[in-house]
Design a binder for these strands. Sequence first.
DNA 1: ACCGTGACTGGCA
DNA 2: ATGCCAGCCACGG
Length: 121
Amino acid sequence: MTTKTRKRRVSRRRKDNFFERVYRLVRRIPRGRVTTYGRIAAALGEPRAARTVGMALRAARTSLDRIPAHRVVNRLGQLTGKHSFPTPTMMAELLRNEGVEVVDDCVVDFKQRLWDPTERQ
DNA sequence: ACCGTGACTGGCA
DNA sequence: ATGCCAGCCACGG
């Protein structure tokens, strides 16, 4: 049957600030590692909210907290958020500065650098 | 409360 | 492999 039953959104019950949760998690990304929007969303219990994670990071520019936003890339390892930094090259430079190679706006050895937020630290 | 937006993603051509 | 498309969803106006 064509039930319109949808999975209820978990975090919706609480009036929690999703953006804040994103920031909290992003701050835990180890130096020299990267993770993806989708993984962050999934780790927060909202596997379909990857785009919202991106929104949060863009908005983070105004946040006074220091957030290693350069460690978040898309599922292909591409630096899709680079244009939200002060300069278009800063994201890549920040990554190289901590040992992450970036070629053509893409993280080299992406799978090795990938950090899963759900794995134990 | 409704509607457009976007640092996304998986699926399919 | 590479590109396009529709679904997704918290936020802000």
